[in-house]
């Protein structure tokens, strides 16, 4: 964790070099035709540009990483949008991962009451379970199962007494699919309740045409972006390695065309976490686009709404 700067919303009593700990008050700028996810966080732009400037002038050591600690109710999408779209930031920073914490004692309550909590879990690559040391085993496994249903692609880890190995939090992105469903797993969705968040995991029966898939996905995000809380996965586009897709609402990470597959399984694996869109609708649409996309979709797993 050396050479890591931390941006926080409120000062806490953290024993860090003050040069590397900055306060960034939330300040958002809504863009023209902007939905909530496509807003720029001006505070973050200012703080990140300042860090670049300080690093450049030698006032702080060369940085390897910046950790942005948001408020508990922050929507992660505008933060990602800010880094991807700012003309300077997009060339100096990339988003490594989104980490959220879930309190085992109150997690269910937050998920029931605050839609932001579900959005945060959907946008996460890693979910850290806290207060596991004071919870019953049943509570831990119930929350873990619920979080995994919301986001099958997230890595969920437990942190008793707040002790965590930084390597565990900051593992390479390619191992995201550790917890992804296997083709054998098949759960029939509860199609009656599509108004709430649920996830769909799918694959294709062959390589897809990347340009065509991009056409379909960009059209879907245009029409339903606010309801597509997350798209994540590896896509077989007929190249030597897969395309790593990662998007939160309208905000897509720049897709990475990887050199090689992370394991022997060379099939596409995609997870969609959506609100009000059923697995049948997604599969039906991809099925109709099959001639353009060049492969047929296959449902791997559909989770009932949570």
């Amino acid at each position: 964790m050396a050479n890591t700067a931390v941006l926080v919303n409120e000062f806490g009593k953290v024993g860090l070099d003050h040069h590397l700990l900055r306060r960034a008050d939330e300040k958002t700028v809504l863009l023209e035709h902007g939905c909530v996810c496509c807003t720029t966080r001006e505070d973050l732009v200012y703080a990140l540009l300042n860090l670049l400037d300080d690093e450049d002038k030698g006032r702080i050591p060369a940085l390897d990483r910046v950790v942005v600690e948001t408020t508990g109710l922050a929507d992660p999408a505008p933060i990602l949008f800010t880094v991807f779209s700012h003309p300077v930031l997009q060339h100096h920073y990339y988003v490594e991962r989104v980490i959220s914490t879930a309190d085992v004692l109150n997690g269910h309550l937050h998920l029931d009451r605050n839609p932001e909590a579900t959005r945060q879990v959907a946008a996460s690559d890693v979910v850290v379970l806290t207060k596991t040391d004071v919870a019953e085993d049943g509570e831990i496994s119930a929350l873990r199962a619920r979080l995994q249903r919301i986001n099958p692609s997230a890595l969920i880890i437990e942190v008793p007494f707040g002790e965590v190995d930084p390597d565990q939090l900051l593992r390479p992105a390619a191992d995201w699919n550790n917890s992804a469903p296997t083709p054998e797993a098949f759960v029939v969705a509860d199609g009656a309740h599509v108004s709430r968040t649920h996830s769909t995991s799918l694959t294709f029966d062959g390589p897809v045409d990347w340009a065509a898939f991009g056409t379909w996905l960009s059209m879907l995000l245009h029409a339903r972006g606010e309801d597509v809380l997350r798209v994540k996965g590896l896509l077989d586009a007929g190249e030597t390695g897969p395309v790593l897709l990662n998007g939160v609402q309208h905000v897509m990470h720049p897709p990475e065309h990887l050199e090689a597959w992370p394991d022997d399984d060379r099939r596409s694996r995609l997870v969609f976490i959506a609100r009000g869109i059923s697995s049948e609708e997604l599969i039906g649409s991809l099925e109709a686009f099959r001639r353009i996309i060049g492969a047929r979709p296959r449902l791997l797993e559909a989770n009932a709404p949570v």
């Binding site: 059209m219 029409a223 649409s285």
Partner: peptide, 29 residues
């Protein structure tokens, strides 16, 4: 690019463009 295409197409078509729309899926198949 495609990011700008869909809103412009929607304006010209005068109706929403949605890849989940059954009528579009019918045309494609």
């Amino acid at each position: 690019d495609l990011g700008a295409l869909w809103p412009a197409a929607e304006k010209l078509a005068g109706r929403p463009l949605d890849p989940l729309d059954p009528a579009l899926l019918h045309t494609l198949t």
